[in-house]
Simulated scan of single mutants.
Amino acid sequence: MLKCSDDTLYTGITTDLARRVDEHNNSPKAAKYTRIRRPVELIYSENYEDKSGASKREYDIKQLSRVQKLFLVK
């Protein structure tokens, strides 16, 4: 989960966390949402063995309210 410069939260999946955070901050490959909200800061991550598990968890996290997401981070 990323915290954007406007204090919003962004959730996604990747196979290389460090590379993806760098892309969100410095590359045109960043998600459209994060490109206009730079810089972003990594505030939470989880590891999964496969893409299916990661995608299911991403969906679950995206269903949470902002308050619930911030509670998860703590």
Rank of each mutant, 00 (worst) to 15 (best):
Y44T: 01
D16P: 00
N26S: 12
K69Q: 15
P28C: 02
T14E: 08
V73T: 06
M1K: 03
Q68L: 11
L2D: 07
L2I: 06
F71M: 10
S52F: 04
C4H: 02
I43E: 07
E41G: 02
L72Q: 09
N26G: 07
K32Q: 08
K51V: 13
A30E: 02
T14R: 07
T8R: 12
S65N: 08
M1H: 04
S55V: 01
F71N: 12
L64C: 11
K51P: 01
D16Y: 05
Y59S: 11
S65Q: 02
Y59C: 09
D16A: 15
E46F: 09
N25Y: 07
G12C: 11
D16F: 11
D6H: 05
D50R: 03
L42V: 03
K32S: 14
E49G: 09
L9T: 06
I36K: 14
D6F: 07
R66Q: 11
S5D: 09
D7L: 13
E41C: 10
P28F: 13
L17Q: 12
L17T: 00
E46A: 14
E49D: 11
S55D: 03
R19F: 08
N26M: 05
D6E: 07
Y59V: 03
S5A: 15
T8P: 00
E41V: 08
D50K: 07
A31D: 06
A30H: 03
T8A: 13
R37P: 03
H24C: 07
T14H: 07
L42S: 00
V73C: 14
L72A: 11
K62R: 14
L70D: 10
D6L: 03
Y44R: 02
S27A: 11
V21C: 05
D7N: 15
L9A: 08
S55E: 09
S5M: 06
S27W: 06
V67E: 15
D16L: 12
E49T: 12
T14C: 15
P39K: 05
T34Q: 10
M1D: 05
S55H: 02
N25M: 12
N25P: 12
R37W: 02
G53P: 00
F71H: 07
V21H: 08
Y48P: 01
A31H: 12
Y48W: 06
K29M: 15
Y44I: 04
P39A: 08
I43Q: 03
E41M: 09
T34P: 13
R20Q: 10
Y59W: 09
E23V: 03
S45H: 15
T8Y: 01
V67W: 01
A18E: 12
N26H: 13
L42Y: 05
R35I: 02
N25R: 02
E23W: 14
L42F: 04
G53V: 00
N25H: 03
E41T: 13
T14W: 13
A18L: 13
L2W: 03
R20M: 06
I61S: 01
D50N: 15
R37G: 12
E58A: 11
A18D: 13
V40K: 02
A18P: 00
V67H: 09
A54L: 09
